[in-house]
């Protein structure tokens, strides 16, 4: 179970990661992982607000943040583990929710490319055309 300070840190990282991924996705037309696919400008605005908001909440929320890393604070290794876990959870949530929200749009890619084994669009670039769910389905077809 996380200590209150670590839990606050995890929440800040979680929200900031949501913002960073949405901001980068909007700027690179990765529509498949956008939560607001039809409004890139609004997405970028909300993403920036999420990043700034998470920092403001964590650092100016009233709780002391300069506390010993040997005591209630987080020493470097724990900080890395909490960051990685929280960021991974945020990315997983984005992949999951965006796959639901963009399900119909993403299915068009499957209709066009189908089980075409020569369609080698893979990696993150595939999110310019479809969702994580449909990209995984296509990957499984290609196996």
């Amino acid at each position: 179970m996380l200590e209150p300070f670590a839990f606050d840190y995890a929440q800040m990282v979680f929200v900031a990661t949501l913002g960073v991924i949405q901001l980068v996705a909007a700027r690179n037309n990765l529509h498949g992982i956008l939560l607001l696919r039809n409004n890139l400008l609004l997405t970028q605005f909300i993403a920036a607000a999420l990043i700034a908001g998470s920092f403001v909440w964590f650092f100016f929320g009233g709780e002391p943040r300069n506390i010993p890393d040997t005591g209630p604070g987080l020493e470097a290794n724990t900080q890395t583990i909490v960051f990685a876990s929280s960021a991974s959870l945020a990315i997983a949530l984005i992949f999951f929710v965006s796959s639901i929200l963009n399900h119909r749009w993403g299915s068009n890619y499957m209709k066009i490319s189908g089980s075409n084994k020569n369609d080698n669009v893979d990696g993150i670039s595939v999110f310019q055309k479809t969702t994580f769910f449909w990209a995984t389905v296509k990957f499984l077809f290609r196996l």
Binding site: Y9, M12, F55, F59, N66
Partner: peptide, 9 residues
Amino acid sequence: MMSDYLVPV
């Protein structure tokens, strides 16, 4: 600025 968290995060 010198916090253990701002710059690393």
